[in-house]
Write a protein that binds this DNA or RNA. Structure first.
Lengths: 207, 207
DNA sequence: AACACAAATTTACTTCCAGTAACATACGAC
DNA sequence: GTCGTATGTTACTGGAAGTAAATTTGTGTT
C-alpha cells in the first residue's frame, strides 16, 4: 500500500553517513499524509513516524507536536482546496454560478482527502495559529465572491461572516463524509441556496 | 466553590448501608456540570468522579463513557438554549426580528455555559447518537422560523440546511467564546445578516 | 438463624498514547 | 586526535480512559 522505502533495515542510532538527512520536513509531511490516508484520522504519532521510517523524536523535532502537524496539514489542505476551486471556476462568470461551482470544487477536494480533513478538524479548541488559518481561508472566500464595500471597513463583521461560512461548510462536510447522504452536486446546490442570498447582498445593501 | 457533600470521608468499598444509591444518574450529571464549570472543558473523568464523590466505575456504569456523557450534556444544553430562546422571543412578531432575537437567546445561553459548550463540542467525529442530536436542534430551528413548504418534502435538503445553520452557529460561537471579539448584540446582528436572507426564501421561492 | 446469591461500591490495575530524556554515532574544525 | 555539534534511536515518563477483581451489604430461602 505505501510507497515508502524498503521495509525497515533497523537503523542503528547515530548520525547517518554521507552528511544527508534521512528525512526533511517535506518528506515527513508527505509521509504523514500517506499514513493518515492509510490509518484514518485517529492515526497515532508513532504510526506517522513509522511511515516515514524515522523515530518519534525526529518527527517531534522537525515538525513539532500534534497541534503543529495539524496546522501544517491545514495549510496543505487549503492549498488543495484552492487549486480545486480554481479549476472548478473555469468557464463560469455569473456570480451565483461561480459560487456554486466553487462549492463543488471545495467538496471535491475534501472528498478526495477525507481522512485528512477529519484529522485536521479533529481538535476541539482552536489555537491562535489555527485561528489565523481559519481567517486565511475565510478571507479568501469572501474576497473571491464579494468584493464588498460594505464589509471592507468592518473587520468585526468580516470575521463573523467568515466564521459563519466556514462553519457551515465544515459541519456540512463532516456530516456528509460520515455517511455520504447525498450526491456532491446536490449538496453544493443546497449549500448555495442557504448561503448565497446572504452573500449576494454584500454587494448591495448598505445595512 | 463546589456545593457538593462534605469533603471525602474516604468511603470503604462495598454496598452502602440503608439500601440507598449514593448517586443516581441525575446527581452524576449535575456533578459533571459543576466539575466542567470548575475545571474547564478538558476536565478528566477522574475529576468528574471526584466532584460527585463517587469512584470512576460508578460513573462509567451509570452514565457510560465520555461520548455518552457528551450526548447527555448535549441534551441538557439544548434544553437550556431552547429555554433561553423562548424567553428571547417574547414580544417579537416580525419574522426577521424574531430570528435575530432567537440568535441572541442562543448566544446568551451558550455564553452562560461556556465550558459546557466547549466540552460538548470537543469531540471530533460525530457518533450516530450525536448526529440525531444535531438533527433534533436543527429541526427545531427550521420549524421555528420557517414552516417551509419547500423543504417539507425534501429530507436531504433539510439536512443540509440544518447542518449549515448549526455549523455557522457552532464555529462562530467557538471563536467568539475564545476571545470575545465583539458584543453579543453585534454578533447576533451579523449572524442574522448572513443567514436570514437564505432562510427567508424558504417561504417563497420554489427552487 | 444460617446460607447463598445479587447489588453497589472501591481499589488497583491495564492499555494506550503524547511527549521527552538519555544515550549513540558521525561530521567538521582546529 | 579530540572536542563540540549535528543527527539519530532506544527506552522511558506521565496522564488519562476504561476495566477486572475484590469488598461489603441487602435480600430471599430453607
Amino acid at each position: 500500500m505505501s510507497t515508502a522505502a524498503e521495509p525497515n533495515p533497523r537503523r542503528r542510532p547515530g548520525r547517518p553517513r554521507g552528511g544527508q538527512l534521512l528525512a526533511d520536513r517535506d518528506e515527513l509531511l508527505a509521509a504523514a499524509i500517506r499514513a493518515i490516508r492509510a490509518h484514518g484520522p485517529d492515526v497515532t504519532m508513532e504510526d506517522l513516524a513509522v511511515e516515514a521510517t524515522v523515530s518519534k523524536p525526529i518527527l517531534y523535532r522537525t515538525i513539532g507536536d500534534r497541534a503543529a502537524l495539524v496546522v501544517a496539514l491545514s495549510e496543505w489542505m487549503i492549498d488543495q482546496i484552492t487549486t480545486e476551486i480554481s479549476a472548478a471556476l473555469e468557464g463560469h462568470t455569473e456570480p451565483r454560478t461561480q459560487f456554486e461551482a466553487a462549492v463543488r470544487g471545495y467538496l471535491a477536494a475534501v472528498h478526495a482527502n477525507r481522512s485528512l480533513f477529519l484529522f485536521v478538524n479533529a481538535g476541539g479548541q482552536p489555537t491562535d495559529q489555527l485561528r489565523r488559518l481559519v481567517e486565511r481561508s475565510a478571507q479568501m472566500m469572501i474576497a473571491l465572491f464579494a468584493a464588498s464595500p460594505e464589509l471592507a471597513g468592518d473587520p468585526v463583521a468580516s470575521r463573523t461572516w467568515a466564521y459563519s461560512i466556514l462553519g457551515a461548510f465544515e459541519i456540512v462536510t463532516v456530516m456528509w463524509l460520515d455517511d455520504d447522504y447525498c450526491e456532491l452536486d446536490t449538496l453544493a446546490a443546497d449549500l448555495t441556496r442557504v448561503l448565497w442570498p446572504g452573500i449576494e447582498r454584500l454587494d448591495q445593501s448598505p445595512a
